[in-house]
């Protein structure tokens, strides 16, 4: 799955497809990229960051030291939290946190789109696809952000577009 996602990211960055394999690590599958000029790289966040540099789109890794760190922090959140959800309660917990975090933000790090938005979007896609309309309204900031990122040119790739309703139906929330 991570390999498909890196394929989508390559397309989105305008790169040719790389040579991938995967190996067992930490109880899951970790993608490995074979690089022509050097040793292989493993791990979703590591490879994704490498691809962005290969495509000469460093701006997607954040401009300042703070933004660079925040981008990497959300990539870590993706691989340690979103990829290891064990229960409904875990799902509620991450959606609640992201919803609060995104309350006053358009993007996860800084004022433009970064790799953090792209990989969290890919990681949340199956989770958001499972939410009811009412749940999408509960996590209104996540929904707004998600809808924005999926319409961002080139990012969605093979993933189905998810539907969000502009006008609230459940007016008793909040």
């Amino acid at each position: 799955m991570a390999v498909d996602e890196l394929g989508a990211l390559e397309k989105c960055l305008g790169l040719k497809g790389g040579k991938y394999s995967c190996k067992a690590q930490g109880g899951g599958q970790v993608p490995v990229l074979q690089i022509n000029k050097g040793p292989s790289l493993s791990g979703l966040a590591t490879i994704a960051s490498y691809l962005v540099k290969e495509a000469k789109k460093e701006e997607l890794l954040g401009a300042s030291i703070e933004e660079k760190t925040i981008v990497q922090q959300w990539l870590e959140y993706r691989i340690t939290r979103i990829d290891r959800l064990a229960s409904k309660e875990d799902v509620r917990c991450i959606l609640k946190d992201l919803n609060l975090y995104l309350e006053d933000k358009v993007y996860l790090a800084g004022n433009t789109i970064t790799l953090a938005d792209i990989l969290i979007y890919y990681g949340l896609h199956p989770i958001i696809a499972d939410l009811s309309i009412q749940e999408k309204e509960t996590y209104i900031n996540v929904s707004r952000w998600f809808s924005h990122i999926q319409h961002y040119p080139g990012i969605r790739q093979h993933l189905p577009s998810l539907v969000f309703i502009k006008n609230r139906i459940y007016t008793n929330l909040h």
């Binding site: 690590q25 930490g26 790289l41 791990g43 960051s49 030291i65 760190t69 870590e76 691989i79 340690t80």
Partner: peptide, 25 residues
């Protein structure tokens, strides 16, 4: 990462890989 970058140092792909391994495994 923030403290290391703030001291003027750079984080390489290989460092990223070790940090990812540390966090996940």
């Amino acid at each position: 990462r923030y403290l290391f970058l703030s001291s003027g140092k750079d984080i390489t792909d290989l460092s990223n890989q070790w940090l990812e391994w540390e966090a996940t495994e």
